[in-house]
Design a protein around this nucleic acid. Structure first.
Lengths: 136, 136
DNA sequence: GTGGATTTGGTACTTTAGTATGAGTTGTAA
DNA sequence: TTACAACTCATACTAAAGTACCAAATCCAC
């Protein structure tokens, strides 16, 4: 919020300076008024582009950022989450076990716990739910 | 490409009109020059916002649009694709069968063919590959 | 209308996935 | 230090998923 105020403050300041400058330049005869207006137009065009890009960037990041709070809320442990990532990579339980240097049994336990925590019946459903909750 | 030229043409036209209008208005004394400049600034600000949004929109759509050509290239039939969508919803073979009003056997056949076409060993891997190829 | 692709489905089997249960090992917060 | 959560692993199941093969019905293009 403070950031937004700062940006807008600076924007207004720049705006005023630009106006004053263009007026002075035109009056003093250093600058053609059309060119001054064109400059202002160009500057504001790019300000529009810049601000829009910034706001869209925030939205995009927010939408594909991982919701860590949700993971905690669901009581998903660190290890369980690593298993979930393995599932999302399309690995089998055995392969996840090899990747994390534990036995397939261990992975099965984690998967089973994960499914109940995510309220899913299958690993594919777990993926769908996890995506909905934006935790993967 | 033709569209871009059209947009820019119109833009330049609008620009010239705006200039002429503001100059005329200022000379005729109907308008204060600061207000004219401010109007131009605002107009160009929104032009910047609008054009930027348009270009970003295209990019976004292109990235999460389904690649139909790829589906054809992989020889994935209409029915197989429907099964793939069922998998991505986290459904079991039986549930996909119920949804498409065919037997589980049929779904198994489709899944098996899908896996070999996608070069996947498991349905979860098929999902990952399908996402990579942007066909789901 | 014939031929090829698609869709359907069955049997028989192997392989994974998932459940239930019990139990030993850590790390760590009270 | 003890109590608890997280992690580990095993056994013994049951339930799905996946493969291989075969076969019939249907649809569509040439």
């Amino acid at each position: 919020m403070r950031k937004i105020i700062l940006v807008f403050g600076l924007l207004i300041l720049a705006l005023l300076l630009l106006f004053q400058f263009s007026k002075y330049a035109v009056i003093s005869g250093d600058l053609n008024s059309e060119i001054a207006i064109a400059l202002i137009a160009i500057v504001f065009f790019f300000i529009g582009v810049y601000l829009n890009k910034k706001s869209l960037q925030k939205k995009t990041n927010a939408s594909d950022d991982i919701n860590h709070k949700k993971i905690e809320d669901l009581d998903i442990s660190k290890r369980e989450y690593e298993v979930l990532l393995g599932i999302s990579e399309g690995l089998s339980n055995r392969e996840i076990g090899e990747k994390l240097f534990v036995s397939e049994s261990t992975i099965k336990t984690h998967v089973s716990n994960l499914l109940s925590k995510l309220n899913a019946k299958r690993r594919t459903q777990a993926l769908q739910i996890a995506k909905d909750l934006q935790i993967i």
